[in-house]
Computed example of a mutant assay.
Amino acid sequence: MISHVSQVGVYVNDQDAALAFYTEKLGFEVRSLREGPGMKWIEVAPPSGQTTISLASKDFPVGDEAKIGVYTDIAFETQDIHGLYETYRQRGVKFTNEPELQPYGKWFAAFLDQDGNQFFVFQPVE
């Protein structure tokens, strides 16, 4: 039986720039960083997260440049969306949607990484 989602991939133009963005601006932790001939494997995650994000190069064997700068289908959750918004904004993260309460009962915001990949963040309403 499957227990959880282990990892998801996000394609990036420059893995080193992506690593800096995800760790310095988003506050993620490096969970794996391995290099081999012509390849680098990087996984990051929020400090309490179980699922990692692999920062995949467009040059990776199954890479696809068309997957860079797109909506990722990845949504994060926070208990303080307004605080997260202010912290990330001060660190230079670009938001495409400021926090707003949605009719389906969650606070919602959307932001971009250094390559324009879009992510959502939600906060449940108590």
Rank of each mutant, 00 (worst) to 15 (best):
V62W: 13
L26K: 05
E77Y: 10
R31N: 10
E100L: 07
L19S: 01
A75Y: 15
A17R: 09
G69T: 01
A18D: 00
F111P: 04
F60N: 12
E77G: 07
A45I: 04
Q123R: 03
A45H: 13
Y85E: 05
F76M: 12
A75T: 09
Y22S: 08
V70R: 14
T87Q: 15
G49T: 02
I42C: 03
S32K: 11
Q118Y: 01
A18G: 00
M39G: 04
G116A: 04
V10G: 03
Q50A: 13
T78A: 09
K25E: 01
R91M: 03
L26V: 00
V5Q: 05
A20Y: 08
G69M: 08
S48A: 15
P124T: 04
T52C: 04
Y104S: 04
S48D: 14
V93R: 03
T23H: 01
N13L: 01
Q114M: 01
P37L: 05
S32E: 14
Y22N: 06
Q15V: 02
N97L: 06
S3Y: 03
D115K: 05
V121E: 09
A20T: 12
F108V: 00
V30E: 13
K25R: 13
D64R: 08
H4L: 02
A75P: 00
D14Q: 07
Q118L: 07
D113F: 10
E43I: 01
A45F: 08
R34Y: 13
G105F: 10
G83V: 02
K94F: 01
G9E: 05
F28H: 09
A110C: 14
Y11L: 01
E35V: 08
S57R: 00
D80H: 12
R34T: 08
P99F: 09
I53E: 06
Q114W: 00
I81R: 09
T51L: 03
L33Y: 14
N13D: 07
A56C: 11
Y104I: 05
M1K: 11
N117L: 03
F60P: 02
E24Y: 04
P47K: 05
R91D: 01
A56K: 13
Y104H: 14
N97K: 13
V30H: 10
Y22W: 08
T52K: 08
T87H: 13
F119T: 00
G92M: 06
I42H: 06
L101I: 07
T51Q: 09
R91T: 00
L33C: 10
R89M: 02
G36Y: 13
I2H: 13
L55N: 08
S48N: 14
Q90Y: 00
Q123H: 03
I2R: 05
W41E: 06
Q90D: 15
Q102W: 12
I68Q: 02
L33Q: 12
K106R: 14
Q123D: 07
F95I: 05
D113M: 09
A45D: 12
D59E: 15
H4F: 12
Q79M: 10
F122G: 02
P124L: 09
S6C: 11
G63Q: 10
M39E: 12
L101D: 11
R89A: 12
G116K: 02
L84M: 12
V121R: 00
A110Q: 15
I68S: 01
